[in-house]
């Protein structure tokens, strides 16, 4: 009897769109924070942006072949990184130019393909800027399943990933496989973009990766602490942004990014510097 009530209670809680949105936002932020640290360390913000821009093409293809959009976005993000690696090998253009071409042509291609598909109604604004209030139970499941996968991979491959980020040759000389670390990093990036798209939208995904990581940099003394703090700061921004969007009736995705920005700006103030110094002087014993 009591069991049944509890189950009903939990089901009711998940029925509330705002609770689902909160869970989804926090889940995505917890995953994006640690991975975002690698994006910052490896100076790959523009790669993240390129993968994100291609997501609309992934959505269009997913609708065309009637598969889960998350899978379509993940696949297209992987294809983008493969194309980039191929182009870099035979490159006559610098990487930033190649990324610019890939990012914007894939976005344009996505928009064109969507326009052709007159038989489906696509909420373009939802994909571009996120529609967190429309996340389903399945979406929440995908976010936490995918997020756990990303965190598990990061924990498992932390040392080779970090060593390869500092110096690929050093990692290779001392028996860690930097090539494998790089491929795994690309996979994780594609996965996070696929699960984050619903929350903040194609245009704002990179912000969720980078801003919490940049904020954590000033507070952390080790790479591990920076990853943990980026996750917490991101979750805080997600919750804060959502409550603010409810309060002021602002769009949820941009509100989350603005909340992250506020945290970043706060980290630049003298008070934050003082807090950072005392945080960093605390040594693990």
């Amino acid at each position: 009897m009591r069991m049944a009530t509890m189950r009903n209670g939990r089901a009711a809680m998940l029925d509330d769109f705002f609770v689902r949105a909160l869970l989804a936002g926090i889940g995505v932020a917890l995953t994006a924070g640690p991975l975002g640290c690698f994006v910052v360390w490896r100076k790959m913000a523009y790669l993240g942006d390129t993968m994100a821009h291609s997501a609309l093409l992934g959505v269009a293809l997913a609708l065309l072949f009637n598969i889960q959009t998350t899978i379509g976005v993940f696949a297209i993000a992987l294809v983008m990184s493969a194309i980039l690696i191929l182009l870099q090998r035979r490159a006559t253009l610098a990487t930033d130019a190649l990324l610019g071409i890939l990012a914007h042509s894939s976005l344009a291609l996505g928009l064109v393909v969507v326009a052709f598909m007159t038989w489906v109604r696509v909420d373009l604004m939802g994909y571009l800027f996120g529609d967190i209030l429309a996340v389903s139970r399945l979406d929440v499941g995908i976010i936490y399943g995918g997020g756990l996968l990303v965190i598990a991979a990061l924990v498992w491959l932390w040392r080779p990933l970090l060593a390869a980020t500092v110096d690929a040759e050093l990692a290779a000389a001392e028996g860690l496989k930097p090539e494998r670390a790089r491929i795994v990093f690309m996979l994780l990036m594609a996965l996070v973009i696929a699960i984050a798209m619903k929350i903040v939208g194609i245009v704002l995904i990179t912000a969720l990766l980078i801003i919490p990581a940049a904020t954590a940099r000033r507070l952390a003394a080790t790479p591990e602490a920076m990853a943990g703090m980026a996750a917490l700061l991101g979750a805080f921004a997600a919750a804060g942004g959502l409550f603010a969007s409810l309060q002021f009736d602002t769009p949820s995705g941009p509100s989350i990014v603005v909340a992250a920005l506020v945290l970043f700006l706060a980290s630049l103030t003298p008070a934050a510097s003082f807090a950072a110094r005392s945080l960093r002087s605390m040594r693990p014993s």
């Binding site: 360390w41 500092v166 110096d167 080790t222």
Partner: peptide, 25 residues
């Protein structure tokens, strides 16, 4: 192998103490 490369550019964005550098690999 212990390797000391000619150049090692550690980006400022990575908080890395000498102590933490020791356990890099």
């Amino acid at each position: 192998v212990g390797y000391v490369p000619q150049k090692l550019a550690i980006d400022w964005t990575m908080p890395l103490s000498v102590e933490r550098l020791m356990t890099l690999t």
